[in-house]
Every structure is written in structure tokens, then in C-alpha cells.
Amino acid sequence: MGSGKIAAAAPKNRNRQRAGFIAACTIPALVLYAVFVLYPTITVFYTAFFSQTSLGGSSRTFVGFDNFIGVFQNSQFLESLGNQFFLIVVVTIITMVAAMFFAALLTQSNLKEKPFYRTVFFFPNVLAIVVIGTLFVQIYDPTNGLLNAIVSVFTGSESHIAWLGEDRFTILWCVAFAMVWQAIGYYMVMYMSGMDSISPELYEVADLEGMGKFKQFFKITLPLMWEVVRVTLVFFIISTINMSYTFATVMTPENMDVPLTFVYKQAYAGNNYGFGMAATTIMFIISFALALLSNKLTARDD
């Protein structure tokens, strides 16, 4: 097929070689991606249009958009979605501000203990999320928990607050705190590497010009690491959605749902698999849209 042309045109031949090389490098990954990500994802979208069990047996019937309509009419889903937005916003803002603050502190100051702090902050990332969840369940324990012990010291009477069994927002703040604690070190390290790539001369000049540290951060540090911030924003949205499933499963199995725990309960224990897949599809679209939105909002004109 067209071998005569290749022999005639040397640059085309090189092009073809290059194409072969690119193909050899990308195809294995692409195939894996297609088999393990694209195919299952499309199956989920497809299943969402059926009423069926998790086995997809004889009871399977096509129901069109009924599942999607049902999801939006389900008050428990809407509440779990509210919880999810709360966690995304709160965890992102607190983690981002705190991680940036510590990153700036560690890069700007010439602390001797810098590597030590870096390790300490990063440490929670080494632990499995299930372990962190269990750890915080112990901290929030109504009878022997650390938090109640601290409260007792301040109030002077024995405290037995059921942190993970109180009203919705107490529970959400408790879970959010655990998630921030888990995430902070990871983003701090990312921001630190962004800050380290900024030339120190800029700060020297700024110092000479009499610019305050605070102003330096907003005029030099933040603009020059904006791309890192953009990337982490997308990370925040995706990872908060994913990790809140594990945190909610471990910390609040019955007292607070996020959309993904709702999906699990509906699809398996509730024997309502198609409906669960519709909720999953909706969550996919929402997280995709959020990631896109954050990318658009933070884009700069230059």
C-alpha cells in the first residue's frame, strides 16, 4: 500500500518511522485505558438506562431516562450531593490556604528543620485513608475520644459529645477536618516545588525595594506558580469526591452519605443497580463539569 511513494520521499519515510515510534509508545497505555477505563465507563452509562439488579439477569428492562429522573427526585441523593459540595468547597479552601501558608513559610524562611517539617506534614499521605478514617473515629469517640477530652478540659465537666452522630453540619465539619489533615501535606509539597522554581533574585529585588513579605507572596509567588495552583484545583475536586467515599464509609456509615456511598447502598444493598448507575453517571458529569469550570475560571489571558 503506497510503498513506491515512501521510497521516493525521504521526509515522509522519516515521518512514518516517527509515527511507528509514537504508536509503539502510546498503544499499550491506550489499550489498557480503553479496556479498563473507557469500556467500563461506557457500560456504566449504558446500564443507567435499565432497571436491573447487579447481576443484570432476567429482570432487566429498558426504562429510558426514568432512573435519571428518579435520582433528581430522591431527597437522599440531593442531600448527599449537598454534603459533597460542602466538602469540596470547605476542604479545598482550607487545604489550599493552609498548604500554601506552610509551603511559603518553609520555602521563604531558612529554617534548619525544613526537611523535618516537610516529612511531618507529608506523613498522613503515607497512611491508607481507611487508617486515617479509623484514627479520627477514635479521636471523635463519644466516651474516650481525644476531642471530648480536650473539650472537658475547657468546660470543666465531662463531655460526651457524639461528634459523628450530631446534626448534619457537625458531622460534615468533623469529616472535613479529617480530609484536610490527610490532604495538606501532599499539596504543601506540590506548592513548595512550585515555589522553589521561582528565582530567589526576584525576592532579593523585592526586599531591596522594600516590599513586605505579604505583598511579595501575592505579587511574586502566587502569579509565578499559578499553573501549579490550577492543576491542584482540579485535583482537589476529583480527589475530594473520590476520597469522601472512603471517609464516609469508615467514619459515618449510617449518619452521613455522599453521592458515592448513596450509589453503593442503592446499587447493591438496595438491589437497584440501574438506578445506582444513573446516579454514578450524574456524578461523573458533575465532577467533569466542575473540573472544567475551575480550569476555565482560573485561566489567564496571557
Binding site: T53, S54, L55, G57, Y268, A269, G270, N271
Partner: peptide
């Protein structure tokens, strides 16, 4: 069991 296996089997006549 939270996996809901028996319920699924029964619904699908399996």
C-alpha cells in the same frame, strides 16, 4: 449482607 446477593438472585430468578 450489604452485597445484596440473595436479593439480586431472587429478583432475577436465579
Amino acid at each position: 449482607n450489604p452485597s445484596g446477593l440473595l436479593q439480586s438472585l431472587e429478583t432475577d430468578h436465579l
